[in-house]
Design a protein around this nucleic acid. Sequence first.
DNA 1: AATTCGTGGAA
DNA 2: TTTCCAAGAAT
Length: 366
Amino acid sequence: MKEANQLVENFQSEAFCDDLITWYRKEKRDLPWRLNQDPYRIWVSEIMLQQTKVDTVIPYYERFMDKFPSLKDFAHADEESVLKAWEGLGYYSRVRNLHSAVKEVEEKYDGNVPSTKEEVSSLKGVGPYTTGAILSIAFDKPEPAVDGNVMRVMSRVLSSWEDIAKPKTRKLFEEVIYKVISKEDPSSFNQGLMELGALICTPTSPSCLLCPVQKHCRAFEEGVQKELPVKSKKTPPRYVPMVAGFFTTEKDTLLIHKRADQGLLAKLWEFPNVEVSENGGRKEEQLAMYMKETYGLDVAIDEYVVNIQHVFSHLVWDITVYRGRVIGHVEEKRDVVCVTKEETEHYAFPVSHQKIYKECTGLKKK
DNA sequence: AATTCGTGGAA
DNA sequence: TTTCCAAGAAT
């Protein structure tokens, strides 16, 4: 691996910064988190934007800020409403960590987001990238904020052939950015690199003819911009067959279950379900047995409804859904409740189980 | 270092 | 259709 010093050798950092920042100030998109420099608003946006596209985030961000306008509002919000605000965005540990960290700021820092690297990076859910983003965008500090855009753009600008999927490569580019970053306007520099990656220096077929830093780009000079960056492939997702039950009770309510506090889709609500085993008999029987063993409930399976495939980053659920009824009284617990269809609106479900609900209630997906 | 954590949309 | 991803962090 080349060192950062070698990569930036003979690189005209000042001219690069000027061209990048001038372009950014003129062409930057009008996004809701660019309204002001409120550290809370910047922080929330950076968490939402992790591994998530701008177009997806915007409506969530608007609703979130309507619901929790200030850091104090969010700090005092209840967990269920917090999860509900994140419903459908994915990576739900983001909002659990954010809520925890905001409460810490409210108590430990009297509601003021800290502005030192040590304090910011110690907050839950705030890693190297988000630390640099908060410090540079909210506090104008010259810290690198190296995300996927920055690694792609700098790989091309410096014609680096390092595998950007390797953790070491991010550290290399952090060193590079420390040497290149504008001290006058680190906020526009960092956001400019990301904006460039999003609008011009895209993963496939970059628009080099429109690029404001084309004359600084070694990949363009060498004609290899489409070969860069190098990125190794991830392991394909694991296939998981499941069976789920849409159970009504004798009171004509729905039986739902709260998932565990940790792990996949933690603390979200779902319809009772279990992974199907190969030699465990028919799926209806496995579901009924699961209901008896896990909840002590006798159930009647009425009909097969649908199969739902849901793809995660690391696994694929194939859920066979049955409609059924609970026989007898249901004793509600912390993680097992019976709700009317209207009341489901107050519970946060993962998208896969929203699909189950829609299929079982006959609602059309839009 | 390699996995685990979601989702919807573009290529 | 399949692949790949998008402003990553925690373990």
